[in-house]
Simulated scan of single mutants.
Amino acid sequence: DPTSRFERYAESLGKGAYKEVFKAFDTEEGVEVAWNQLRIDHLVKRDAARIVKEIEILQSLRNDNIINLYHSWTAKDKDGRDKVFFITELMTSGTLKSYIRKTKGVVKPKVLKSWCRQILSGLHYLHTRDPPIIHRDLKCENVFINGNNGQAKIGDLGLAIVKERDHVSSVLGTPEFMAPELYDEKYDEKVDIYAFGMMVLEIVTKEYPYSECHNQAQIYKKVTSGIRPLALNKVPDDDVRFFIETCIQFDPRYRPTALQLLRHPFL
């Protein structure tokens, strides 16, 4: 990096089509961090500029329940390809998804409520920025757990979009967690509330919502017709089921805000 503050280790933490994450060392703070590198050479100039702008916005966020982004720069890699580099805090215990998979039996109510409160307070922070920031791809794989204190943080804000108009258009995300209005490309921050409800459903049932569907088209059909996932019938506790149903209502106007959910009697 241009400041020589961060030293990248050889150890790769994960690799996608355009993104790779390494462990690194912050020489100033004496802590390990995550070194993210994102290829942008395949994008048209406008999209590349948008990503750089989004990263700048993410860098301005500071909250206990969001993976904080400390530093970013653009540079060419060894092959001469344009890349965006950014340093985020390192979460050592993996994702909420891996946590649910590792633990046997039912997630205890106290733990469930603690996770819910933390995720909601992160969402409340994002949604109350000016303009609001919509995550758009909230799911258990994108929430990270700090194993030694149980802290939950929302990460992977890569799809997070700043809402400058009344509605944002472009369909991206994970079908099982996508609110019906996302398909119409007219949506606001309530899509995150819907996805949050689906996350809670996955935490308590330990199964992916709409696993009864065999492909994305079937999920699309059910979601846009207002047919709820079968997993909802497997939620034994009425209070939990009612809480989930409140979040995944078909009409976004009836879904509560993150702040209203934080004040919900269930929590």
Rank of each mutant, 00 (worst) to 15 (best):
191 V>K: 02
108 K>M: 08
189 E>W: 01
28 E>K: 12
217 A>I: 14
46 R>Y: 04
6 F>D: 07
154 I>T: 03
146 N>P: 01
127 H>I: 06
248 I>G: 11
107 V>D: 04
251 D>Y: 15
197 G>N: 03
125 Y>T: 08
182 L>V: 13
215 N>H: 15
169 S>D: 00
87 I>H: 12
137 D>E: 11
85 F>K: 08
78 K>P: 01
167 H>V: 02
175 P>E: 07
266 F>R: 02
30 G>W: 13
231 A>Q: 15
4 S>Q: 13
230 L>Y: 13
153 K>M: 02
260 Q>V: 05
191 V>R: 03
16 G>M: 02
40 I>A: 13
49 A>F: 07
228 R>Q: 12
222 K>T: 10
40 I>F: 12
156 D>M: 06
65 N>K: 00
24 A>K: 10
64 D>W: 05
238 D>N: 06
21 V>C: 14
50 R>N: 05
238 D>T: 04
216 Q>W: 05
84 V>N: 04
153 K>G: 01
34 A>N: 11
187 Y>S: 01
53 K>D: 07
263 R>F: 08
241 R>Q: 14
30 G>Q: 04
196 F>V: 05
253 R>V: 13
158 G>V: 12
220 Y>I: 04
8 R>K: 15
124 H>E: 13
75 A>N: 07
150 G>W: 08
64 D>P: 12
135 H>R: 01
239 D>V: 00
264 H>D: 15
140 C>E: 01
61 L>T: 02
2 P>Y: 10
249 Q>C: 01
140 C>N: 14
37 Q>L: 11
11 E>C: 08
138 L>M: 14
211 S>Y: 07
128 T>A: 03
163 K>M: 08
168 V>W: 00
14 G>E: 05
91 M>E: 06
236 P>D: 10
220 Y>C: 04
49 A>N: 12
14 G>K: 06
154 I>N: 11
191 V>Y: 05
176 E>W: 04
35 W>K: 03
3 T>F: 14
127 H>G: 05
214 H>C: 02
155 G>H: 10
113 K>M: 12
27 T>F: 02
203 I>S: 09
83 K>L: 06
13 L>T: 08
267 L>K: 04
